[in-house]
Every structure is written in structure tokens, then in C-alpha cells.
């Protein structure tokens, strides 16, 4: 908790999960990962740590939030939207599509 409050992006409260995804998927260092995500969202890198602004952006794109809104994407649903917006493959999304038969016949 001390690390999260003092020095980290705080995950889905802001865009921390999105930046971490770029590090894990593309080995991007912190500044490059922030720039990539910021460009995709149309904001500045410094905005990615603004929980107030990011709450709006996450709601707009259906990225999931700490306190989910009713009828809004959650869990794997939100990750479909994240994968599409960031232009990356998310393993669990790919598996979900395969197991639900969603990638057969162009569905």
C-alpha cells in the first residue's frame, strides 16, 4: 500500500494497468509505455495518473473501474475493450473467444 500511495499509478484507479500491460507485452520502459497509452487515449502522459480524469476516460471506453458503474463492462468484458483500444493481444481475451466459439466463421 505504501508503494501504491507514494510512487505508483494505482492500477485501474488511473491507467496503471494499461501501462503495465505495455511493459509486459512489449518490454517498454516506463516513459515509452506511458507515451504509448497516452497517445492511444488522446491525453498527455501526466494525465494517466489523474484518477479523476481517468475515471471519465475509463467509463467512456469501457475499461472497468474500481467502483463499477451499473451496466458497464467488468472483468473480461473490459479487457476486450482494452485490447482493442491499445492494439494488443490479451491472452485471456483470446482464450475467451476461442472457448466461446467467437472466432469461428468470422463471428
Amino acid at each position: 500500500m505504501a508503494h501504491a500511495v507514494s510512487s505508483c499509478m494505482s492500477g485501474i484507479r488511473t491507467a496503471g494497468d494499461l501501462v503495465l500491460r505495455m511493459q509486459l507485452a512489449k518490454s517498454m520502459k516506463i516513459d515509452a509505455a506511458k507515451q504509448y497509452v497516452a497517445d492511444k487515449l488522446g491525453v498527455k502522459p501526466i494525465d494517466l495518473s489523474d484518477s479523476d480524469l481517468m475515471a471519465e476516460i475509463r467509463a467512456k471506453h469501457g475499461f472497468g473501474r474500481s467502483f463499477d458503474l451499473n451496466k458497464s463492462p467488468k472483468g473480461i468484458e473490459a479487457k476486450f475493450n482494452i485490447a482493442r483500444k491499445l492494439g494488443i493481444k490479451i491472452n485471456s481475451v483470446e482464450l475467451f473467444m476461442a472457448r466461446a466459439g467467437l472466432n469461428k466463421g468470422g463471428a
Partner: peptide, 14 residues
């Protein structure tokens, strides 16, 4: 008692 990084210098955690 506690300090924090400059705004915009936040990193991510594993």
C-alpha cells in the same frame, strides 16, 4: 512522515 514522487513520475508495480 511519508513522501511521494513528483507528479507524473509515478511508476507501475508487479
Amino acid at each position: 512522515n511519508i513522501v511521494g514522487v513528483e507528479r507524473g513520475r509515478e511508476v507501475v508495480s508487479t
